[in-house]
Design a protein around this nucleic acid. Structure first.
Lengths: 111, 111
DNA sequence: TCGTTATTTCTATAAATATAGAAATATGGA
DNA sequence: TCCATATTTCTATATTTATAGAAATAACGA
């Protein structure tokens, strides 16, 4: 991953409303939620929500899927995992490090 | 981790210069680097560097340690791992997910 | 087609952030 | 103490970003 991409992803997540949207979608799984549902749950105005969804979507952190009149957004687990890898890349000059045990990111392939 | 904290951490990393500083320190391991060395390596002006180090430091992403006239900064691996955990929390409503294999963040305890 | 609902774009305003020159502060050595 | 070096704070300027009302667009059902 390029630095520029990573900055875009981080900036997309570094905002209250967008982080809330993203986490809601992560928890929702691959099905995602329609724009209206997101707005209701998080109490965000239409225009504001649309603005933030575009940011997240441009960054590739969420994916859009049209179903009739509704647009469903869902988390893009791949993109997040790429970011996590980038942030911890080449840790400690390649010397052996104890892996941090508590973390096991998901790839969104729910069973 | 609170949402507010996560936003602060993400915002701290969501900037070219700061991301470069942070990654440089992650790669440097627990010893870290003095401010002057960081500035040299990344070609950043004094005032600018100081500004960004403060941001990262306030967020708790890096740690400062005085040694004589020098101040060494090093990555705070714990804080990063907390953030990674927060971002993937409660993935897919607790349904079983395939863990993403490629990621194994480090805790900074180099051997 | 027309009306209804879902979502986005337009627009303006308010607020936060990055940058670096110059001055100030701290530390250690002579 | 005085000097040299390391780092931070002060200051001003330029840029980016968040917000939401209102209007526009899109999709469906009657």
């Amino acid at each position: 991953m390029e630095t520029k991409t990573a900055v875009t992803l981080l900036a997309a997540l570094a905002q209250d409303t967008r982080l809330a949207i993203y986490r809601l979608l992560v928890q929702q799984g691959p099905e995602g939620l329609a724009v209206g549902q997101i707005g209701e749950r998080l109490a965000v105005a239409n225009a504001t929500l649309s603005f933030h969804l575009k940011e997240l979507s441009h960054a590739g952190l969420i994916l859009a899927r049209q179903e009739g009149r509704f647009i469903y957004y869902s988390a893009n687990y791949e993109q997040m995992n790429g970011l996590l890898g980038f942030l911890t890349e080449n840790c400690c000059r390649g010397e052996a490090c104890t892996p941090a045990s508590s973390i096991s990111p998901c790839d969104g392939a729910c069973q």
